[in-house]
């Protein structure tokens, strides 16, 4: 197990490295000079030269790559063109908001999605099952940004039930009041992202459980005289958990992307809206920094889910 862990971690590190190199190459094959600006953002030749030197754009490609990676290792992602502050700083500033949103959605997915998935597997082919499946497919088909503006527009603006934008009221109260305020602001964006993503989790879990329910050891469990709930949750679900764990490794990129739209629509001050702003302003260091962070999160997420899988599956653990 230890050997496997080491191997898997090295693999993750390699994957991240390759992702970073690919990102680097991508930026450099893009047409257009990242430093060229028109209109109000125009730079003088001296400024351009200075920036070029600062970003090392005058060095050969490999040198730049080394500088890029070297900087990354030190946590230096460059300086944002928009804000003039270190990218790392900006990213860390906005990370908690995205973590809060993403974490909430992940939790909802796990609890509700898993529960519904198991429930529907047991009630396979019933009318309720068919309806919920179709509804969840419709949820999956819903564009998150559209759902966001509809919810924000109606629940938020027209009916004034919940705040439609931002993370909190600028006029804060004490800690508890602030916490409640943040939670109120969290509801709509979290709801939007959850509706769109829960379908996938539910269907995956349902499919996984159905697979397991067909297996002979489930018959053994029933033949022992165990209560059905135990058969489903202890014997079947424990084995159907694995695909769902893997799913979280895959879900991460989707949640990250989804949060880009949702954060943008709800003006939620997280990484997603930061990235959108960077796109509009052609703030490449910031954009690249965000991409790097996201790649790291994704690699970490898949690594975590693989490790969890290994810990939970004795067949892997004891080999």
């Amino acid at each position: 197990m230890r050997r496997w862990l080491v191997r898997r971690t090295l693999q993750a590190a390699l994957t991240l490295l390759i992702a970073l190199v690919l990102l680097f190459l991508l930026i450099h094959i893009l047409p257009g000079d990242p430093l060229a600006r028109e209109g109000e953002h125009a730079l003088t030749p001296e400024q351009t030269e200075a920036l070029r030197a600062r970003y090392g754009l005058d060095r050969p490609l490999f040198g730049q790559l080394a500088a890029f990676l070297g900087g990354l290792a030190k946590g230096d992602l460059g300086v944002s063109i928009q804000y003039g502050r270190p990218v790392t700083e900006l990213l860390l500033e906005r990370l908690p908001a995205t973590a809060l949103l993403g974490g909430t959605v992940l939790l909802l997915n796990f609890v509700l999605g898993v529960w519904l998935g198991v429930r529907q597997a047991v009630r396979k082919d019933s009318r309720e099952d068919r309806w919920i499946t179709t509804l969840s497919l419709a949820g999956y088909a819903t564009p998150s940004f559209w759902l966001g503006i509809v919810l924000a527009g109606f629940v938020g603006v027209r009916w004034r039930l919940l705040p439609p934008a931002g993370m909190r009221d600028p006029l804060g109260g004490g800690t508890v009041a602030t916490a409640v305020d943040i939670l109120r602001h969290l509801i709509l964006p979290a709801l939007t992202l959850s509706i769109v993503s829960i379908a996938g989790t539910m269907r995956y879990q349902r499919a996984a459980l159905l697979e397991v329910l067909r297996l002979p050891y489930i018959v053994t469990a029933r033949a022992k005289g165990l209560p059905e709930s135990m058969v489903i949750w202890r014997h079947a679900w424990r084995n159907a958990l694995f695909p769902v764990l893997t799913l979280f490794g895959l879900w991460l990129p989707i949640l990250v992307s989804g949060s880009v739209f949702v954060e943008s629509v709800f003006a939620w001050p997280g990484l997603g809206s930061l990235a959108i702003g960077a796109v509009g302003n052609r703030d490449y260091p910031l954009l690249v920094g965000a991409a790097v962070l996201v790649a790291a999160v994704v690699v970490l997420g898949t690594w975590l889910s693989d490790v969890a899988y290994a810990v939970l599956d004795p067949r892997v653990r004891t080999s």
């Binding site: 297996l215 002979p216 050891y217 018959v219 053994t220 469990a221 029933r222 033949a223 022992k224 005289g225 014997h235 424990r238 084995n239 939970l312 599956d313 004795p314 067949r315």
Partner: peptide, 19 residues
């Protein structure tokens, strides 16, 4: 089940829960 009739199945590899 189990108390008055016990049952053993054909393939012990798939009839035992692996976890």
């Amino acid at each position: 089940r189990g108390r008055r009739i016990g049952m053993i199945f054909q393939d012990p590899m798939t009839s035992l829960n692996p976890v």
